[in-house]
């Protein structure tokens, strides 16, 4: 049951994130990307199995774990992933602001940066 609930929350966050990322509004896209990142972090955390367990901390005086503890490896990976994800989200916000330049922000304006479409018999691509 907890497994199912956990999977459901990952699915909901990922779907909401992608849905936002597919919109035209650049700010929605940035929020969507952040949500997709959160879903990915949760999924990675889940790879260590989401079970009732104590944190992987040795109490003072103990020399070995006497009880079941949570898997520390995915935690270490996810911790750095959260910070990197935050840095990249900030980058995306900066990009969005720069593109906006004070105007309304439109994802379709991004297409202006795309190479021209291919003509018959010739490949498309950057000039």
């Amino acid at each position: 049951m907890t497994n199912l609930l956990f999977a459901l929350s990952v699915a909901a966050i990922a779907a909401a994130g992608l849905w936002l990322a597919l919109r035209r509004d650049l700010v929605d896209i940035v929020i969507g990307l952040a949500l997709v990142g959160t879903a990915a972090n949760l999924f990675l955390f889940g790879a260590g199995r989401v079970v009732e367990a104590r944190p992987p901390l040795l109490a003072a005086g103990e020399t070995a774990f006497a009880h079941a503890v949570a898997n520390p490896l995915p935690q270490a990976l996810v911790l750095t992933a959260i910070v990197i994800g935050f840095a990249l989200t900030c980058f995306a916000v900066a990009l969005a602001l720069r593109l906006a330049g004070g105007r309304e922000v439109d994802g379709d304006a991004l297409s202006a940066a795309e190479p021209p479409p291919a003509r018959d018999g010739e490949p498309g691509g950057l000039p």
């Binding site: 999977a7 990952v10 699915a11 909901a12 990922a14 992608l18 849905w19 999924f43 889940g46 199995r49």
Partner: peptide, 16 residues
């Protein structure tokens, strides 16, 4: 978007 969420959710469940 729903398909993507379902895939990630399904993967999570499979992993668990």
């Amino acid at each position: 978007a729903v398909a993507f969420g379902a895939l990630l959710g399904g993967l999570t469940l499979a992993v668990q």
